[in-house]
Design a protein around this nucleic acid. Structure first.
Length: 502
RNA sequence: GGGCCGUUAGCUCAAUUGGUAGAGCUGCGGACUUUUAAUCCGUAGGUUCUGGGUUCGAGCCCCAGGCGGCCCA
């Protein structure tokens, strides 16, 4: 042990009383030869196993069976010669421990009262019984500390402040069953996605997160530097251009579930670091991949929640069953405006519509952006039931194939759920000459100061020049899928969201 | 980026017009062999986010900043 203090580390005198008391208990135990952090304890059963084995005991039953269990002390009730403690283990299962003077003896009982605090991990061995009130319990003949807690837990029956829940997620997980369930639900959803892909013959790949060019989406990237290459690198904003290289190479059904990074602020539906699912399939189109995306989501709902109707955090039910509504962007916007708009509608007419509906839009926006912003304002934000919106303006969809019959629009859909964008799907643009023109437009925007514009990725174009089969592709935010299925904000679906340093 | 709101004990929150900063739980001491947020008695715990200012006097008013939330862009 090292007694030298780091200059900034607090001395015991600075600590609140409750923390000082626990540190003193730890020191006292060590001095008495008791290890407050033993390397192991001889546990024979989990709390869940005990609960499962003795589910139907009458009150005041003695089974004669001895078990040795562990758990975190969540509540303590002492009555002189008889002590009760509620133990909890990882999955939230609780079991009562009882320490009676005539079973453990005077020394062990007074040590229990003196040494054990709320939050400590303890080991308790004894007979499985039920109390007079019928509570399943372990009546200890032996107990021991498994790990001493040096910080007082927040009071268990008041809701923890949201900031503390996020900054100290470990405390949130200790206290809130819902916090633990959210983590498991997310794992179940991601697992279901993978299984859905595997059952359809897709291959999971991992493509670069450190990229020399940022592309595949329009967003500001995080920039970093490689010392070895002496080159600027970017944390990826999307895996799209690499997944398409895979399709060129003959991996005709590929998917990736991994992190993307966008150098932007966070709010209730955005996080600078977020999990993204993208998948590409040769000979698919935006029609077929819309069907598959719906199936993926429905299969995830069934796998994680057992139903196509999920219960959201506010208690309301949300129906994901059946086929979902499909709109076109221009059609639904025309209906909302009460006047026909098309890809030919001039910018000044669109701007008048924006003014008339109180949408303050950047005067530099062109036709495509104006349409999308107006649509989001007037239609998208109010789409509650799952809805596919199809046929976006071509100029804001640089990686998407032009519509096979309708000029000016792209074969692209967005999936909206409860007013936010959950996924997007394309019939992919595979003509390398047209793709080069689109990326050159993007590069011009970038040169003009648009720091969200894509860069011109020559290697990607070279790959396309070898010939990419007609393909459909989809991107879906995994955090947002959890939001859609649970009604939680994005910072609840992410275990450790970004927070400003304390 | 703009506007509004919040920031007080370990946790959740009070504090009247600017006049001694309180409660519950937690903690500490004590009683209690069937409790379930145990109960009862006693008791401790504060740089009121930070820094300036006004005032006889500031948790409260003013200025600047930090952190957080909501709304808008």
């Amino acid at each position: 042990m090292n007694d030298e203090r780091v200059p900034d580390s607090p001395t015991d005198d600075d600590l609140p009383e409750q923390m000082r008391v626990r540190r003193e208990k730890r020191a006292r135990l060590l001095a008495a030869g008791v290890d407050p952090y033993p390397v192991e304890v001889p546990r024979t059963h989990t709390l869940a196993q005990v609960r499962a084995s003795y589910s139907e005991l009458a009150p005041d039953t003695a089974t004669g069976d001895r078990v040795a269990v562990t758990g975190r002390v969540m509540f303590i009730r002492n009555t002189g010669k008889l002590c009760f403690a509620t133990l909890r283990e990882g999955d939230g299962t609780e079991l009562q421990a009882m320490l009676s003077l005539n079973k453990v003896g005077e020394d062990a009982l007074s040590a229990w009262k003196a040494d054990v605090d709320l939050g400590d991990h303890v080991f308790v061995a004894g007979e499985v019984i039920t109390s007079r009130r019928g509570e399943l319990s372990v009546l200890a003949d032996e107990w021991r500390l498994a790990a001493k807690s040096l910080r007082p837990l927040p009071v268990a029956h008041k809701e923890l402040a949201e900031e503390t829940r996020i900054r100290q997620r470990y405390v949130d997980l200790i206290l809130r069953q819902q916090a633990r369930e959210t983590v498991r639900n997310r794992a179940a959803v991601v697992r279901s996605l993978r299984e859905s892909f595997h059952s359809r013959g897709f291959t999971e790949v991992e493509t670069p997160m450190l990229q020399t060019m940022h592309g595949g989406a329009t967003a500001r990237p995080f920039a970093t530097h490689s010392n070895a290459l002496d080159a600027e690198l970017f944390l990826r904003i999307a895996p799209e251009l690499y997944l398409k290289r895979c399709v060129v190479g003959g991996l005709e059904k590929v998917f990736e579930i991994n992190r993307n990074f966008r150098n932007e602020g966070s709010d209730s539906s955005h996080s600078p670091e977020f999990a993204m699912l993208e998948y590409y399939e040769a000979y698919a189109t935006y029609d077929s991949n819309a069907v598959m995306t719906r199936e993926l989501i429905q299969e995830a709902a069934l796998a994680a929640f057992g139903s196509l109707t999920v219960t959201l955090a506010d208690g309301t039910d949300y129906d994901l069953s059946g086929e979902w509504t499909t709109l076109t962007m221009y059609g639904s916007l025309s209906d909302a405006l009460g006047e026909e708009v098309t890809p030919e509608t001039p910018v000044d007419v669109l701007r008048k519509h924006a003014d008339a509906h109180g949408a303050e839009l950047d005067p530099k926006l062109g036709h495509g952006k104006l349409i999308e912003e107006l649509w989001e304002h007037l239609v998208g934000n109010d789409l509650y039931a799952p809805t596919f919106v199809r046929d976006f303006p071509i100029e804001t969809s640089p990686l998407t194939r032009q519509h096979r019959s309708r000029p000016g629009v792209a074969e692209k859909w967005d999936l909206y759920v409860r007013g936010f964008e959950l996924a997007t799907g394309y019939s992919e643009l595979v003509d390398p000459v047209v793709e080069r023109e689109r990326l050159e437009d993007q590069a011009r925007l970038g040169a003009a100061g648009d720091d969200e514009a894509m860069q011109l990725d020559e290697d990607f174009l070279r790959a396309l020049e070898y010939g990419m089969p007609p393909s459909g592709g989809v991107g879906m935010g995994v955090d947002r899928l959890l939001m859609a299925l649970t009604g939680l904000g994005i910072r609840e679906t992410i275990l450790f969201p970004q927070v400003r340093p304390e």
